[in-house]
């Protein structure tokens, strides 16, 4: 294992009854790397992300963060060790305003703050993603991309070691999509470590250094984004299993 490996999966497996959703998957994510986790629908990408964040316990295999194992730990401990995530369907806290939503990620997370300092930090994060003017808005009033921004800000405010984005760009219109890609680009330029589950090919091409391709729960390819996207087996997996 290289010294600057942040996340490492070794033989990660998840079974639901008879169905093997994630089948013996291994890969590494190094510091400052943006890794794309791609594949047709139902190929186990989101489940893999859920194994890393601790939303689901792995049936077998080992997952480690900076060399320390996090397999089997509850989600809250994994979050404290520095793994933050967004959800496939945006999940904001409806009774709180934007600022409080963002603070929620920073009060109990990896770097913990409270009171004035937590509020200041959350404001800084909001400024970075361009939402400082809406800090006091209720989340019910936000546009779709703004809800996604707030969720991203919440994930960032714990200053995680690694950020997991589960189809963060899905459902955006073309204008929003380019704003969204720009935003993640800025995070990438800051040197953040990110795992990205994504369908939007343009985003994958412009954002990801490397990609892991999954199909029917198995890893079928791994490498730099360009190599992987021109791999015949990957193309077959996409066109064969998924009409889209």
């Amino acid at each position: 294992m290289m010294a600057n490996t942040v996340i490492s999966l070794r033989g990660a497996t998840k079974q639901f009854g008879g169905l093997v959703a994630v089948d013996n998957v291994s890969f590494d994510v190094r510091e400052h790397e943006v890794l794309g986790l791609i594949g047709p629908n139902g190929s186990g990408k989101s489940t893999t992300l859920n194994l890393i964040s601790g939303a689901l316990p792995a049936t077998d295999g080992e997952i480690s963060l900076r060399g320390g194992t996090i397999t089997g730990l509850p989600a809250r401990q994994i979050a404290r060790k520095g793994v933050s995530r967004t959800f496939q369907l945006v999940r904001l806290l409806p009774s709180m305003n934007v600022l409080e939503n963002v603070m929620a990620g920073g009060v109990f997370g990896h770097r913990r703050r409270w009171g004035q300092s937590a509020e200041r930090h959350a404001m800084q994060v909001l400024e970075k993603i361009g939402m400082a003017d809406k800090a006091k808005s209720r989340v019910g009033q936000l546009t779709y991309i703004d809800t996604k921004r707030v969720e991203l800000a919440r994930a960032l405010s714990g200053e995680p070691e690694v950020l997991l984005l589960d189809e963060w760009l899905a459902g955006l219109n073309p204008t929003e999509l380019s704003e969204g890609i720009d935003l993640i680009h800025r995070l990438r330029d800051e040197g953040r470590t990110i795992i990205l589950v994504e369908h939007v090919m343009d985003a994958i091409r412009s954002l990801c250094d490397n990609c892991v391709v999954m199909s029917s729960g198995k890893k079928i390819a791994e490498g730099t984004t360009d190599d992987v996207l021109s791999d015949p087996e990957v193309i077959r997996a996409y066109l064969g299993d998924d009409d889209a």
Binding site: G54, A55, Q77, S84, F87, S95, M96
Partner: peptide
């Protein structure tokens, strides 16, 4: 912090777990 944590739990317990509560 405890009060803040409980408000988050009341809104969405899954989110609460994933922010480290």
């Amino acid at each position: 912090r405890l009060g803040f944590a409980l408000r988050i739990i009341g809104d969405d317990e899954d989110v609460a777990r994933h922010v480290g509560i």
